[in-house]
């Protein structure tokens, strides 16, 4: 029993990271119907920016995290403005390939500036662990999980209860109606990128607290996992992305329990392939009817 609870906490932790990043994929897909393959690398940049503030500039934790989040949000807006917006009318293939290019650009740019893996200094050395009935959870882990959940609740509120959220949902529905509502389409899309990238940045900071060695390619695999989470939940579906992250976390944890750990990625990608072929609209989405 304790073993299962322990595994459950692992599911919560990996799932939180996936969900936070998956939200960025799903929101951008919602407004632009485009898969932002660079999003995993935005997450990586978040971790590196955090490193810059905390380690190089020696700022305290909270301002560092805030600054990293704001800058990644701006980075998200910039990628949209300079790489994706010029392609909005172009064939989808161009946008997909551009996104892939932006991702590789971010990786190599980071690599050019930081040729070696970096180490985030331990910030919460004083923090202890809680244990009950053989289940051990570090306070840091608990904080990461709780904070992630809080951010997701905040986003869910924003999407469903605020005017901005309404505009985002309206664009996802039909881009042409939004100007009628007196809202700038470009503004809403920029805001979507800012929120998505900002959440990715936060995920990067939290992830680097738990796994302090960071490198320019760390976003590739995590980004893919987050993307798979978004597909599980039905890409474009905000709550689906949140649930999808935890579902994938569960699947991966189960894989590790029953198979050698190295099979984790193969399982995740196979799940993706199966979903795309048999249920491309995800577990929570509805099938689209295609008009010929």
């Amino acid at each position: 029993m304790a073993y299962f609870l322990q595994q459950f906490i692992n599911v919560l932790q990996t799932g939180s990271t996936y969900s936070l990043i998956a939200l960025g994929y799903t929101m951008v897909y919602g407004v632009l119907s485009m898969i932002n393959f660079a999003h995993g690398d935005i997450f990586m940049v978040g971790a590196f920016l955090f490193f810059l503030f905390v380690s190089t500039l020696k700022l305290p934790f909270v301002p560092s995290m805030l600054a990293a989040t704001v800058l990644t949000a701006l980075l998200g807006v910039a990628t949209e403005r300079f790489a994706y917006r010029p392609l909005r009318g172009a064939p989808k293939m161009s946008a997909v390939i551009t996104a892939l290019g932006v991702g590789v650009l971010l990786e190599h740019l980071t690599l050019a500036i930081n040729p070696y893996p970096r180490h985030i200094p331990a910030m919460f050395e004083g923090s202890g662990t809680w244990s009950a009935g053989g289940v051990v959870i570090s306070q840091l882990k608990a904080a990461i999980i709780v904070f992630s959940l809080l951010m997701m609740a905040l986003l869910d509120f924003t999407i469903n209860k605020t005017k901005l959220g309404m505009a985002i949902r309206a664009i996802s529905w039909d881009m042409s109606v939004v100007p009628l509502m007196g809202v700038s389409v470009n503004g809403v899309i920029a805001a979507t990128f800012a929120i998505g990238a900002g959440l990715g940045g936060i995920a990067g900071v939290l992830y680097s607290l738990a796994y302090p060695v960071i490198n320019p390619y760390m976003g590739v695999m995590v980004g893919w996992k987050a993307f798979i989470s978004a597909v599980i939940g039905g890409i474009g579906n905000v709550r689906g992305a949140i649930v999808g992250g935890y579902v994938l976390g569960l699947v991966e944890t189960l894989t590790i329990v029953f198979l050698p750990a190295t099979y984790r990625d193969v399982t995740a990608f196979s799940l993706l392939l199966i979903l795309l072929v048999y249920r491309p609209y995800g577990l929570m989405g509805k099938p689209k009817t295609f008009k010929v």
């Binding site: 099979y263 392939l273 072929v277």
Partner: peptide, 25 residues
């Protein structure tokens, strides 16, 4: 046969990832 556009792009990328992971295993 069934999947087109960016979804097929994901299939191909995922395929490449599976090949790489499989070889690593």
């Amino acid at each position: 046969f069934k999947t087109r556009g960016d979804y097929l792009a994901i299939v191909t990328l995922a395929f490449a990832m599976i090949v790489k992971s499989a070889l690593e295993n």
